[in-house]
Design a protein around this nucleic acid. Structure first.
Lengths: 230, 230
DNA sequence: TTGAGTTATATGGATAGACATAAAAAAGGC
DNA sequence: GCCTTTTTTATGTCTATCCATATAACTCAA
């Protein structure tokens, strides 16, 4: 007995919306009626519609019903991989190098970024991630030693701080941002590009139960593009 | 009678994972047992675990069971809003200006980007989006007139092509990418920045049932940062 | 020992029925 | 007419029970 699946219903509804059978803003029949039409239980229709609403195609409200979103939400999802994995998945050999390591007090700009009230002691690391022969990314990492004192003892000469941190505190709240920056003398040297070259950079601040953990600035080599499809 | 909700179970499981009660890679009890523990139906546990798996915290496989992901997937979700809405939600006045409009044949680089086999006729638009007094974004838009002939008649002097396209073909397949670029003479003039300034840019190619629709390059004013939290 | 076939089992999914809840619509009071 | 209260109703969620399906683990023969 061929039962109809919530997937089929999802696709049918999606197709009806895309083909314009239900226009933007139009109201869909209620779950009960759709279930009768499809010859299935209400729960099956419910799951299909609920998932489509999560994906941003539909809008649902108790009592008022389900309608096609006026402006379907366009959202891009980027997986944030470990640099090492990203490079390896490109089929390139991954090399890592620690350029610099110092223990200091958080400068004012860092206190602002990490929402610190006092200039906590921090570990500042500067690392290079290489893909084959090309200098892929410079990682400028600041770790709060008050929150993560264990970082003081960690050896970052063979393993990047990102991987160490993920193994140490796998779950945290994150704020992430992407922007463009110009290569300064250090970046030009480390990434092998010209002074002033436009570079793509990501910045990430991390908290563990509201305690500031780390701030990192990841500057990518010339021509890097972060892409996705949806 | 206080029934337990799938949300509570989700939070309880999440907390157990975050607190390390279940370590990375550890196997969770089977749904049936968890349901017995929580005193609820298996479907309730199922929904909680299913959603946590979707969020990237857990990994599930038939017969083998549920376990905590070794490397919890870190994914960032960016909502891609209309420039107008983005600017308005900043509390700024939105102004739009059409800088240039020409009908031509797709140049070679565009054919590559849009996966065109022939140099189709295209409509090329150059637009400026202004937030208050600051030049916010330059939109460099190419519309395939073979796929969307109606664009030839559309008036883009008052409404941006992005909004027109969304109203005309709300659903499509999209490939999106972000990178850094240097301001050329045109960009420097239109965005009011210096020649060579590093600028953040997004590129988007769009298809409707495999037919190439449009390619757009959106270059943002100096200092723009695309941010999100998770 | 190894490969092919079988079985057991955890998740995946469907159903019917019940109650909860938010909010639109109707009813009532002034 | 206008505000408050009640009713109605579509979605939200839970239960109990079924069958489906992938696959790990086992069986057994070559």
């Amino acid at each position: 007995m061929g039962q109809i699946s919530y997937r089929q219903i999802k696709e049918d509804v999606r197709s009806k919306v895309v083909r314009g059978v239900w226009a933007l803003g139009a109201e869909l029949p209620k779950e009960e009626d759709m279930a009768a039409d499809y010859g299935c239980a209400r729960a099956t229709v419910n799951r299909a519609l609920r998932e489509l609403a999560e994906e941003g195609l539909l809008e649902r409200k108790r009592k008022s019903g389900t309608r096609v979103r006026q402006a379907p939400v366009r959202q891009a999802r980027f997986d944030i991989p470990l640099v090492r994995r990203e490079i390896e998945s490109l089929g390139e050999r991954y090399t890592y190098r620690l350029l610099e390591r110092e223990e200091t007090q958080a400068p004012a700009w860092l206190c602002a970024r990490m929402r610190l009230t006092r200039p906590d002691p921090v570990l500042h690391l500067r690392c290079l991630h290489v893909a084959g022969d090309t200098h892929y990314q410079v990682e400028d990492r600041w770790i709060n030693l008050t929150t993560i004192p264990a970082a003081r003892e960690a050896d970052f000469t063979t393993q990047g701080p990102n991987e160490w941190l993920i193994a140490t505190i796998p779950f945290s709240d994150v704020e992430i941002g992407f922007s463009a920056t110009a290569a300064d003398a250090d970046l030009a040297r480390d990434l092998g590009c010209a002074l002033g070259d436009p570079l793509f950079q990501g910045e990430r601040s991390t908290w563990l139960n509201d305690a500031p953990v780390t701030y990192v600035r990841m500057v990518f080599g010339r021509g890097y593009k972060m892409t996705t499809r949806y």
